[in-house]
Design a protein around this nucleic acid. Sequence first.
DNA 1: TTGAAAGCGTTACCAC
DNA 2: GTGGTAACGCTTTCAA
Lengths: 345, 345
Amino acid sequence: MKKKLNLKQVAEQLRVSTATVSNAFNRPDQLSAKLRDRILKESAELGYFGASLAARSLRRGESGVIGVMLADSLSYSFSDPVANQLMQGIAEVLVEQKKQLLLLSNGVSSAEQSGAETLPDGFILYGALQGNAFEHILRTGKPVVAVDFEFSETASVNIDNEQGAYAIASHALSKDDSSQVAILGLRLIDSARVCRLVSEDLVSQSKEISRSRLAGYLRAAKDKGTNISADKIWHIPINSPERAEIAAREALTSNPLPNVLLCMSDVIALAALRVAHELNIAVPEQLQVTGFDDIPEASRSTPALTTVCQQSLEKGRIAARMLLEGNMNEKRILETRLVVRQSCK
Amino acid sequence: MKKKLNLKQVAEQLRVSTATVSNAFNRPDQLSAKLRDRILKESAELGYFGASLAARSLRRGESGVIGVMLADSLSYSFSDPVANQLMQGIAEVLVEQKKQLLLLSNGVSSAEQSGAETLPDGFILYGALQGNAFEHILRTGKPVVAVDFEFSETASVNIDNEQGAYAIASHALSKDDSSQVAILGLRLIDSARVCRLVSEDLVSQSKEISRSRLAGYLRAAKDKGTNISADKIWHIPINSPERAEIAAREALTSNPLPNVLLCMSDVIALAALRVAHELNIAVPEQLQVTGFDDIPEASRSTPALTTVCQQSLEKGRIAARMLLEGNMNEKRILETRLVVRQSCK
DNA sequence: TTGAAAGCGTTACCAC
DNA sequence: GTGGTAACGCTTTCAA
């Protein structure tokens, strides 16, 4: 195999100037079709297929690469169905627009100077980033779309979590005034362990997703005249089936037994269904279970999950389109939709 | 916000030379700790956090970016549990080694000259790529690790699909000589529709994954004295729950009813479990179901899935390590493991 | 320990 | 329609 050639060497070989070769690749109108065809064909024969991204991007000031940074670790994110659906939507649009996708790892240490945030032409940020990665990205001055969090200076795509939670809780509580309600909550407090809340934990003005959902649940309960005390609310530190099962087992072996279980994610709700099955608790007859997200698995479980559709896929598409179309002032709030299936009629 | 500065301007502001600033970031030993600290601190204040990737990569000839190209479309891959587990393993190692991850879309058209394949220092290729993307990547002369396919000139990580399939089929067929066996196969022929095979379809020397698995099933059947005719083998064009359900429904409403169902992926097997449940066919009493892959969901279904663990996560880790450590001659074959759960005792 | 300068591969302006 | 050439931002050698 011959040594890799660069544009200059190709130009020499073909006995034209570098500008002409460059034009052949980038600006068809700048030369005769005939010459262009010759150049394209012969460079391919020489093993030259186009400019190096580094050089072109240095010169042009843009790379054709879009950076996506996820609040959770990259590795974990690949196991999260919601993140995957979002990525799927993003990827769909980027591929269609011939953009490349750089996955930035949101490391804690600022020391990891790879400078990767300098390459992309724009960013999609999923979830509120901790650390100074966020700041670094803002400093680049490049367009940013925030997904599932809000930042004054950037465009964003969000859903109304409070409203979605209110809707599903209202549905779950509608038939029975004397409900025993338990809540399996995600990331409600700052603890790495599954545990119940205490009453002080309820006072929080946080705008985090999980706090909004909790607020929605509690508002619905209040409207129905139901009370939910702090010890009926579980905190789950991470959206994993294993942790969720632990919490579900605690909740479903507590006394009095809840007959409505509001779960802050479908992963948690699915875990609850498994635990209920294992404990011979009939769903929905003895226990109503609700989820949140509407991940693909939600419609396939037995019983199928009643949940709130937050359109993660569409969210990804929209975020990507906003970024590419440059709507950098838009603050988009997507509709949520109550999806009633068997787990909570 | 101030205009973005470059290294040269930072050097001017700090009244040192560009080389000194560069050294402060890249070669701590080339200057006094004191000066270095001052430079780092003051550049951060000026909003300079390190070199632009394009420029550094142009100059140094390496970027710190690893490219991953998937045989299936990027968007689809995010919905595939096996691909996601692989990516999880890859991401784990790359983050740990402070490498960035560029996801290359395997577009069909060679026209999409984004030149993205010129940036990465190395590639992980998952599945046999169609089109000339593969050739382009090889031409770069950069290290490549092939996953789940074999190419003479590159390192690779594979499993022995024939053997894994043989093992699970032997297990499934061990108790009953008069088994009615059906196979739900993935990508066995070149058709976009779910359909049964005909006998001509059985002759194939292809080394594709699905063909190896089929060979393993058939060898096991032969060893047990069971015959499996072509019309008991279904072709499913894509590993999606929807398609799999169609095939499963066909198979489980055919006459004579199969009592052993060998599925070439867990996604397919899980679909089969759902269909069996819907048709009131008891698993494993009336119907034994086996999967392949051991995705996380396999252990969570009811009944839990008997399957072949192919260690997708570890596969990703190993591929990434091989690439980073530069073992470019290694051809690694990972062990598969039979995982017996309730769906096929 | 520091500074000047060459050059990485490309593009785009401006002449011809 | 075509060809010089400066500039993109940085690293690294070499000399001071």
